[in-house]
Write a protein that binds this DNA or RNA. Structure first.
Lengths: 116, 116
DNA sequence: ACTGGTAGCTAGCAACACCAAGTACTAGCA
DNA sequence: TGCTAGTACTTGGTGTTGCTAGCTACCAGT
């Protein structure tokens, strides 16, 4: 979707994945697939795996290795209590930002109409 | 507001500044002050100035040097046609992201309630 | 033996916001 | 005159992040 999206995802992709895990536990390959389905077409596996390593190292998720019938074992991630708190903070920041931007958009649109 | 906000601002701060300039032309010091008023309390001047240099180099804004009564001359930035197009793209990306996140939030909340 | 799907990992890169310090101009005050 | 404070812009270095582009490993079907 272009460079704008790439930069915008910095910081939000983490929240997106945590939110996915809040719905239900999942493993990397699955998360990547779900993101692609939801329209994040060009998110690459490597990005997701690196992110998962990060949030695991920070103690936001619990990990369980589960054998798969069709390949190597899966690493299933599930949100734990610190992760849930962190996700709450994320929604707080996101809400603030979304509010500001919505307001700004209205102002910019109004200025646009007046200028026309 | 914490590290989450810092990372989230990557990519969106640029859009925010462009949107501010869409409302009306402004100079760096003024933009910083306006951002602070609007709740982005810990955005530092250095960040804004670097961003302005960037969007100028990309040709998204026109610049005019205007003398000030109380200090060095101001560099007044105004959005030009490429800048307006770029801002439109930004709103497109932002809208997509905001939609996804809103949907995700609903799903995550619902899962939360069912789990309780 | 080979291809393709599943599943995970990693080294190097570019972009961005932050930090910290600096320059320069003006006004006011001792 | 010297000092502070407000205005206004600049710059070098840092840490985090997503992307690129590869790699390993396991299994099923041809």
């Amino acid at each position: 979707m272009g460079k704008q999206m790439t930069e915008m995802l910095k910081g939000t992709l983490e929240g997106i994945v945590l939110a996915l895990l809040a719905v239900r536990p999942a493993y990397g390959y699955e998360i990547t697939a779900r993101l692609r389905e939801q329209g994040f077409a060009d998110i690459v596996e490597g990005t997701v795996y690196a992110l998962l390593v990060r949030i695991e190292r920070r103690g936001l998720v619990d990990v369980e290795k589960v054998p798969s019938e069709k390949g190597p074992p899966r690493k299933v991630y599930s949100l734990n209590t610190p992760g849930r708190e962190y996700l709450e903070d994320f929604w707080g920041s996101w809400g603030f930002l979304a509010d500001r931007l919505e307001q700004l958009r209205r102002e910019a649109d109004r200025a646009q109409e007046e200028g026309t």
